[in-house]
Amino acid sequence: MEAKKKLLDMVRDKIRFKHYSYSTEKTYVHWIKHYIFFHNKKHPVDMGKREIEEYLTSLAVKSKVAPTTQNQAFSAILFLYKEVLSVDMSEWNVQALRAQERKHVPVVLTKEEVHKVIENLKGIYNLVTMLMYGCGLRMSEVLSLRVKDIDLGFEKVYIWDSKSLRDRALPLPIKLKKRIEVQIEAVCELHKKDIENGYGSVYLPFALDKKSPKVKYETKWQYLFPMNNVSKDPRTQIARRHHIHPKTLGRNIKVASQKANLNKRVTSHIFRHSYATHLLQAGIDLRSIQELLGHKSVETTMIYTHVVSEMNKAKVISPLDF
């Protein structure tokens, strides 16, 4: 008789069935586990609306988590009840004290500051950051790029199944075309060596691996910015070459900003903010920027009009200087 699966294993199976990312899997499992331990290991089947409200309120009041963190925990719990336990929550109307949300105007870099940071980045990290800024990409999008996503002939970069679930084509910066071409050649050579050494497979999205088992060995599916070393896939334990680790890229950007003597908190996302702001300053209309960024709503993109507005206010002359 087959042993009954543990709850968290059921969660993992459902997440993988729905093709969520590994980072989402880790996050959801963490919050579901935290929720269960908060209620003294009581099984979620025996809990409901009241327990969820108590937990979310505690996160806001006692733990004082950020709104995004509380939303993340709530999303994990919703996934647990709806997708794993098949519980209809439509009539629950969960009411919890929500963490206070603050609207932040994004920090952006001037063009000069962007170039200062980029100048202090070396090798592959220099190219990755330039592509992030040049196309307004999220870190996850630039690192997930495959060789097939670059169209040198039409000078396009294709983003598939991004955060907004809207595929989009972006103009490839002409300044980067030759460097990207060289990078693709380097990936091809590296892939040949991996094949010779008994590796060469790459993680494939959705069920493509099962439908076409040989595709994972094709060069076009290899990551554009691969890691230096082969490592084990945390889900399958298969040794393969993954893309550059996000923490490594983030650390290199931080060091480069320090060398550039910038008194701003520079993260990978600041290049996306700067891209949008600089396009707006150049006269590109908001709808076009929305499509380039892949935002579902133009309201999300409108935050950059506030950034430009604040910049314009800075040009106002004080009456003392009249």
Rank of each mutant, 00 (worst) to 15 (best):
Lys4Ala: 11
Leu7His: 03
Asp9Gly: 11
Met10Ile: 03
Arg12Ile: 08
Phe17Asp: 03
Lys18Tyr: 04
Lys18Gln: 12
Ser23Asn: 11
His30Leu: 10
His34Glu: 12
His34Ser: 10
Tyr35Thr: 02
Phe38Pro: 11
Val45Thr: 13
Glu51Tyr: 08
Ile52Met: 12
Glu53Leu: 12
Glu54Ser: 14
Thr57Ala: 07
Lys62Gln: 10
Ser63Leu: 13
Val65Tyr: 04
Val65Phe: 09
Asn71His: 11
Ile77Asp: 02
Leu78Gln: 10
Tyr81His: 09
Val84Ile: 07
Asp88Trp: 07
Glu91Gln: 11
Ala96Arg: 09
Arg98Lys: 15
Glu101Phe: 09
Lys103Trp: 11
Val105His: 06
Pro106Tyr: 08
Leu109Ala: 03
Val114Ile: 07
Glu119Phe: 05
Glu119Leu: 04
Leu121Arg: 02
Ile124Asp: 07
Tyr125Met: 04
Met132Lys: 02
Tyr133Pro: 03
Ser140Tyr: 03
Ser140Met: 09
Glu141Ser: 05
Val142Gln: 06
Gly153Glu: 13
Phe154Asp: 15
Phe154Glu: 15
Ile159Phe: 06
Arg166Asn: 12
Arg166Met: 09
Arg168Ile: 06
Arg168Ala: 08
Pro171Thr: 03
Pro173Tyr: 05
Pro173Met: 03
Leu176Met: 06
Leu176Asp: 08
Lys178Cys: 01
Leu190Asp: 03
Lys193Ile: 06
Glu196Asn: 03
Asn197Gln: 06
Val202His: 11
Ala207Asn: 13
Asp209Lys: 15
Lys210Arg: 14
Lys214Cys: 07
Lys216Pro: 09
Tyr217Asp: 07
Lys220Tyr: 15
Tyr223Gly: 09
Leu224Lys: 12
Phe225Cys: 11
Lys232Ile: 07
Thr236Cys: 15
Thr236Leu: 14
Gln237Phe: 15
Ile238Gly: 04
His242Pro: 05
Ile244Gln: 05
His245Thr: 07
Thr248Lys: 07
Gly250Leu: 05
Asn252Phe: 03
Ile253Glu: 00
Val255Lys: 04
Ser257Tyr: 00
Ala260Asp: 00
Leu262Ser: 00
Lys264Pro: 00
Thr267Val: 00
Ser268Tyr: 00
Ile270Phe: 02
Phe271Tyr: 01
Ser274Gln: 02
Ser274His: 02
Ala276Trp: 04
Leu280Gly: 01
Ala282Tyr: 05
Gly283His: 05
Asp285Gln: 05
Leu292Val: 05
Gly294Ala: 04
Lys296Val: 13
Tyr304Cys: 11
Thr305Cys: 06
Val308Lys: 10
Glu310Asp: 15
Lys313Gly: 09
Lys313Glu: 15
Lys315Gly: 06
Val316Asn: 12
Ile317Asp: 11
Leu320Met: 14
